[in-house]
């Protein structure tokens, strides 16, 4: 199977969907002539032209809202945010309009948009460009949140997101764009809401999404080699819908869970998952559920400190060893 970059897997997903459905358009800053700030849309403007791949001015509120308005009439915009951090200037459009129009119209209107871009820290750019708002989005009924951890999932989930008739927020990761995974040539889709066991294990469940899955896989290796701990790594893939069954099945098997995510801890995604586990698998637990999140301060610029701020292998291993 060919190995391809995370960014290329996304690019292929866009190309296939642009090809398949005339109503799919890509819009965002620098995505067309510049080929994408992170080259995720490279070559698509040349191939599909101005009508389908559209550069916008730096006006997130307007172009996110424009995408929502267009989607009400059947266009399927895939809106790139150069960083998910920039969603904050389009908050009203994304969190008020996209999330509630269907409900407030009693189901008369739907909003089939994808809003996508990187949402991660660890890139040494300071607080304004390092937000991970998957918890905000997942908090909001009406929205769906997908966080692919690898190229294979990124492509399959993106294609599903584009075909989904609800607003789907896809949160990618700049640190993954340049990494390669096996991706088949033939077309495939991954249903939204289905978690994936990335590593089977018996002793403890590491439950994560996005790049933290990769960090957990590294931590699992260390745990196995250095401590003979057999960790299972469960990739949630999406936060809403959430594969609760997969979470509970894993915890029932291992009886211990460490939740790993890049959110800040207070009201982060891990808080919700911990609540679900304690409610539905309390009797299966041999230890308290622990969390590894980003440290609870604005994202720090200084590189060595930021590396400590976001979840890393050492912190995961340390946390696992606290309960095992």
């Amino acid at each position: 199977m060919p190995q391809i970059l995370y960014r290329k897997a996304l690019n292929d997903a866009f190309a296939e969907e642009l090809e398949r459905d005339e109503n799919v358009v890509l819009i965002g800053e620098e995505i067309a002539e510049y080929n994408g700030a992170y080259k995720v849309t490279e070559g698509l403007h040349a191939r599909f032209g101005d009508r389908r791949v559209i550069d916008t001015p730096i006006s997130e509120a307007a172009f996110c809202g424009l995408g929502i308005g267009a989607s009400m009439l059947g266009i399927r915009p895939v809106i790139e945010l150069m960083f998910w951090s920039f969603s904050y200037v389009a908050f009203d459009q994304l969190f008020n309009n996209a999330a509630t129009v269907r409900y407030m119209s009693g189901g008369l209107i739907n909003v089939p948009i994808v809003v996508r871009g990187p949402a991660n820290g660890g890139t040494n750019v300071g607080a304004t460009h390092s937000h991970t708002p998957e918890n905000f989005a997942a908090y909001t009924p009406g929205l769906k949140v997908v966080c692919p951890s690898n190229a294979y999932d990124a492509k399959g989930l993106m294609k599903s997101a584009i075909r989904d008739n609800d607003p789907v927020f896809v949160m990618e990761n700049t640190l993954l764009y340049g990494q390669k995974w096996e991706v088949p040539d033939e077309e495939y889709l991954i249903p939204i809401g289905k978690a994936d066991i990335k590593r089977e294990g018996a002793d403890i469940s590491l439950i994560a999404h996005g790049r933290c899955v990769i960090t957990c896989l590294e931590a699992a290796k260390v745990l196995e080699e250095d401590y003979e701990i057999d960790a299972e790594v469960l990739d949630l893939r999406s936060i809403r819908p959430l594969d609760q069954e997969a979470i509970l099945n894993s915890v029932r098997k291992t009886n211990r869970a460490v939740l790993v995510d890049e959110n800040k801890p207070f009201c982060g995604t891990g808080a919700q998952i911990a609540a679900i586990i304690q409610e539905h698998a309390f009797d299966d637990l041999d230890a308290p559920v622990k969390r590894v999140s980003s440290l609870d301060a604005p994202q720090i610029y200084s590189k060595p400190l930021e590396d400590e701020m976001i979840p890393n292998v050492q912190r995961i291993v340390r946390t696992v060893r606290e309960i095992l």
Partner: peptide, 9 residues
């Protein structure tokens, strides 16, 4: 912005 998007569509 929604109205602008309707016009876009």
């Amino acid at each position: 912005p929604l109205g602008t998007g309707i016009a876009f569509a």
